[in-house]
């Protein structure tokens, strides 16, 4: 866990402007993307922009990595695969990440986003991130 870097991530101009919040209960972390007009991709459906949902999932993945172990730098995305399962409606989105594996250089993360029902996800992300674990920290998880 690195509170300073987690703060750096959340205070980055893009992330702050996006309006993402983190809801932390012990070691459980939920990302909240409060609905805002600027997140809409197609006003005629209306649905949130696929890119906005994807970006939110990436932010929650990074935040979960920072919250789960001491890192020296912000995680850097290597690749992401995003599946869009349902249209994301004009309302808040929530997301939770599972760190499937966190090694000495690379972490493998899965994130699931939902709106009304946690068992009806709107999108999922599976990605690899370059990480720099703090010196002396044991391999987490």
């Amino acid at each position: 866990m690195n509170p300073v870097l987690l703060e750096t991530l959340m205070a980055a101009p893009y992330v702050a402007r996006f309006g993402v919040r983190l809801d932390r209960r012990g070691n459980e972390l939920t990302g909240v993307l409060p609905f805002a007009d600027h997140l809409v991709g197609n006003p005629l459906i209306p649905a949130l922009h696929g890119g906005a949902v994807g970006a939110f999932l990436e932010i929650v993945a990074s935040a979960s990595l920072l919250a789960s172990q001491p890192l020296e730098r912000l995680p850097k995305p290597i690749d992401v695969a995003i599946d869009y399962l349902r249209p994301a409606r004009a309302q808040d989105v929530y997301a939770r990440a599972v760190v499937a594996r966190s090694g000495r250089r690379v972490a493998n993360v899965r994130v699931e986003a939902w709106q009304n029902r946690i068992d009806a996800p709107v999108a999922t992300l599976h990605g690899h991130f370059l990480i720099t674990p703090a010196q002396g920290s044991s391999e987490a998880l």
């Binding site: 980055a12 101009p13 893009y14 890119g51 970006a55 992401v80």
Partner: peptide, 27 residues
């Protein structure tokens, strides 16, 4: 744009900006 920066130390754009740009262009 500075308001789209994801890593303030490096000054690089957030990956999410690239994600949205690629999603929109692909769409």
């Amino acid at each position: 744009d500075e308001s789209l920066v994801g890593d303030p130390d490096a000054g690089t754009l957030h990956g999410g900006v690239i994600t949205a740009l690629l999603d929109h262009a692909c769409g």
